[in-house]
Design a protein around this nucleic acid. Structure first.
Lengths: 196, 196
DNA sequence: GCGCAACTAACGGCCGTTCGTTTGTATATT
DNA sequence: AATATACAAACGAACGGCCGTTAGTTGCGC
């Protein structure tokens, strides 16, 4: 076997990345140490390097996995035959669901990507800008077609992308409404305010 | 003189706190070193300790200054005779303006408060929870009075508080719309979607 | 017995902070 | 007016500690 499997559901490197995701989300990339991570995995710090190249590689894996998922989704939505406002809603719902199911890596990517170093830093930064422009493009088309109120599209993108980060607080709050309810509330508030 | 003044506009400690605010915003609290800060102030690292007690004290000053400003504002608004929806709008506008004029300290407080240690950590955490509950209370009253759509109030608070963080990106973007335009766009999008 | 993955030990480096000293300057004394 | 005093605020050097990472070795499963 080239790679050993851990409990028949993935390589050890994947286990490490998952633990790193949780740890980085909790403490922040800089404040989380490789010794912390080793303890979470149940191993000595040096042993981690049998599976990974560096601490930054872990951050790279997290950031680009997140970036690729969002890029893939916007590819799909742009090529669909939904109306513009439906496309905006679909992207919003995707963001909300990613924050439900993979919020730890989404938050790490969003908060800690600046700790990447070049060329990954520029790469990620540029992917991020492109992604936001594509979202703004969808909204501008909707405005041109009078489906959406005449608002500043980049501002809408800023609001949407940051609003969903609030779901992080939801994850750790006591009296949670259901994911479905939260999603419908968010869509109601953010999308109704946009309709022409 | 008990405290010497620097260029007749404040103590040296204030100069240090301001430089720390910029540095923490840029690099993050953990990644910013006291030697970085010293260089920004134009002094050796050791000299900083003639004016401050510790690195964490700087974070404390930033976090509680921000917390106090928001607490003070919600005191004022709660006691005003505005309608509920007007109160929500007033708080939103205050958040937006704070993000225009003092965004660096607002962002540091929001992103790095977890690096405080007790008793400051619990203190800040509790202030934060109380603040959010007060905002949710305003919204719930508005719903009861049928000024506001029947939505989940804590969710609205999450959306509002996080949406304004998007203004950080605005600060560093090239093609900026004016602050006034941004404010009106944000209010339009977020408040119109709320009205019953 | 071969190879992967764990271990212990240690490296150089940066961290926040302390120490003891020097410097600059505002005030008091002659 | 010149000199002495006092003290805030700067400095260079160093501290113990944790950081990411490497080296060399041991042990275990095929």
């Amino acid at each position: 076997m080239a790679k050993i499997k851990n409990k028949n559901n993935g390589t050890k490197k994947e286990v490490i990345v998952e633990a790193a995701t949780r740890l980085f989300r909790e403490k922040g990339f800089k404040a989380a140490s490789m010794r912390d991570l080793a303890e979470a995995v149940g191993v000595e710090a040096a042993s981690l390097y049998n599976h990974i190249q560096s601490k930054e590689e872990l951050l790279q894996e997290i950031c680009f996995k997140v970036a690729n998922e969002f890029t893939q989704k916007v590819d799909e939505i742009e090529n669909s035959d939904l109306t513009s406002i439906q496309k905006v809603e679909a992207m919003l719902r995707f963001h909300i669901r990613q924050m439900f199911h993979h919020y730890e890596m989404v938050i790490v990517a969003d908060r800690d990507w600046k700790h990447l170093s070049d060329p990954y830093l520029s790469n990620f930064h540029s992917q991020r800008r492109v992604y936001r422009k594509r979202l703004a493009g969808i909204i501008e088309k909707g405005i041109a077609q009078k489906e959406i109120k005449p608002v500043d599209a980049p501002t809408v993108v800023l609001i949407m992308l940051h609003a969903v980060n609030g779901i992080e607080s939801w994850h750790r709050s006591k009296e949670k409404i259901s994911p479905k309810q939260l999603e419908e509330n968010m869509v109601l508030i953010m999308i109704e305010g946009l309709k022409a």
